[in-house]
Design a protein around this nucleic acid. Structure first.
Length: 483
RNA sequence: GCGGUUGUAGUCUAGCGGUUAGGACCUGAGCUUCCCGAGCUCAUGACCCGGGUUCAAAUCCCGGCAACCGCACCA
């Protein structure tokens, strides 16, 4: 059984996550729900992201609308470019990317963003046939991956579910910049749901149609990307970069001076991103940054790196790090005829953008896979204490001599401060095992000694060792442990 | 989206034209239990959806949906 299957089974048995609308047979793929434990963990992950990135870097956080009007996506280029030009073989029904099979046949570079007619013209010019069966190809159909919605009673106004959260950040930039009295460089962050009509969603949380993102857009003056004080704090920190088919540990200052990373600002944000991921419990040796080739970059990206994590199903892209230049702000300025320029040291500029676009669902899956361990006698989810869906569980050792009542009392005290859980069923061993599986770091047990001296035992998830702590020191003890 | 395989309780699985649809683990109740899925008793719970063939369908056929594997796709 692979790690993937282990996590999947755990997720289903404990309700971390499961398929959306699963009771109905026609529920479409690519939509998943988080149950109570998954939700708790997801919230804690976002909390960690806030602490380690948003707060650490004094970013501003906003919360934008999911439905946005067509104009936004005309300006952003998504209407035109967030597409796959597809052709189908009339004989064997295989579907291909029009641009790809034309360039294979012709040896020419074919732009991705031609019209349907232009693709059809190229197909007949080069006499492109099905690479599989030599069958005749259908007309090109441009498939846009955005979900269209109609606004109003008669569906008159066309709008879309946003395919990335950052468009809100770009659209809101002038007001946020002004109202928060910003100076460049400034980062604006957002978490939220985005929607992409993927052709084939796969592998539970790894490829979804409805995605939770946590995005950070850094706005800066491109002529000052190397005058960046914060860089000092990370210059010795080593990034894990995929260079020449292997992972190289390289300090931020070396990466910049050798031109592997184009400036100090970008290096700094990559560093704090990797530091954040180290705090999720994902093993450092399973991380890397990979510079994207020309053919795999998004249409708005000048330079792109993916932050990837190794799982049982290969390297998974968790964060897209894109240098978007002034592509978005200029696009919105042009389309809306509003002024997106700001004054930086007396110079009037359109800021450039560097983004960290993180997939929360994928990250959560990777954290679970990286922390799940099958030991001889038990399954344990060894997540960092601060990400555990349940922080402390309270058990009476046996159900007599006033222990359940005492345990209830302690549970009531703890649940005000921590995600807590009470259980008095079955044997104590079974209750410990159940908590191990969902990653609960502390099991607090009330025994006969508790009844005499007001102390309890706290069992550590990883070592299974117990310590005895006074009840009135419990809150502080746990707080200290989870940091 | 294509091809192949598959769909039985929360999970894993037996059954492959007529079964009270069997088991294991889990879950719940009770007994027991002073520390690691122990034991005993009892209980809950399933044939993916729709149509067809048949006296009779979980079982055969068709369609849908989903999952898995490969291909393609994945800003």
């Amino acid at each position: 059984m692979s790690k993937y299957d282990d996590v999947m089974k755990l997720a289903l048995e404990r309700g971390f996550f499961f398929q959306s609308s699963e009771i109905y047979a026609d529920a479409p793929a690519g939509f998943w729900e988080y149950g109570p434990l998954g939700t708790s963990m997801k919230n804690k992950l976002i909390q960690l992201w806030r602490k380690e990135l948003v707060k650490r870097d004094e970013m501003l956080e906003i919360d934008g609308s999911v439905i946005m009007p067509e104009d936004v996506f005309i300006a952003s280029g998504h209407l035109k470019s967030f597409v796959d030009p597809l052709v189908e073989c009339k004989k064997c029904k295989q579907v291909f990317r029009a641009d790809k099979i034309i360039s294979e046949k012709s040896g020419q570079i074919v732009p991705e963003r031609l019209s349907e007619k232009e693709f059809d013209a190229l197909i007949s010019k080069y006499n492109v046939r099905c690479p599989n069966c030599k069958g005749e190809l259908s007309k090109t159909k441009i498939f846009n991956m955005m979900f269209k919605v109609g606004i109003g009673a008669k569906d008159e106004k066309v709008a879309y579910l946003r395919p990335e959260t950052c468009q809100s950040i770009f659209v809101d930039f002038p007001r946020v910049f002004r109202t928060m009295r910003c100076k460049l460089p400034i980062a604006i962050a957002q978490t939220g749901r985005v929607f992409r009509n993927e052709i084939s969603p796969r592998q539970c949380l790894l490829r979804l149609r409805e995605i939770i993102q946590a995005e950070i857009e850094v706005f800066f003056n491109p002529s000052k990307a190397n005058e960046f004080e914060k860089f000092e704090s990370v210059k010795k920190y080593k990034l894990r970069m995929w260079i020449d088919e292997k992972i190289v540990e390289i300090s931020c200052e070396d990466a910049v001076s050798k031109g592997i990373i184009s400036n100090k600002l970008i290096a700094y944000y990559l560093a704090i991103l990797q530091q954040f991921y180290e705090k999720t419990g994902i093993k450092r040796e399973n991380m890397r940054f990979r510079t994207l080739g020309e053919d795999e970059k998004a249409f708005y990206t000048k330079q792109g790196l993916d932050f990837e994590v190794l799982t049982s199903v290969g390297w998974i892209e968790l964060v897209a790090c894109n240098y978007r230049t002034d592509y978005d702000l200029s696009g919105h300025a042009k389309e809306s005829k509003k002024d997106f320029s700001v004054i930086d040291d007396g110079e009037k500029i359109i800021p450039h953008v560097f983004e960290l676009s993180m997939g929360i669902d994928r990250t959560l899956f990777c954290i679970m896979e990286n922390s799940f361990e099958r030991e001889k006698e038990r399954d344990v989810l060894k997540v960092p204490f601060y990400l555990a869906p349940i922080t402390c569980a309270v058990f009476p050792l046996v159900n007599r001599e006033g222990m359940p009542e005492k345990a209830r009392e302690i549970y009531e005290m703890l649940r005000k401060n921590f995600d807590s859980f009470y259980d008095d069923s079955g044997s104590i061993g079974r209750r410990y095992r159940r908590m191990d599986e969902v990653g609960c770091p502390f099991c607090i047990t009330i025994d006969s000694q508790t009844m005499k001296d007001d102390t309890v035992t706290i069992r550590d998830r990883d070592s299974m060792k117990q310590v005895r702590v006074k009840i009135n020191e419990l809150n502080d003890w746990i707080k200290k442990m989870i940091g």
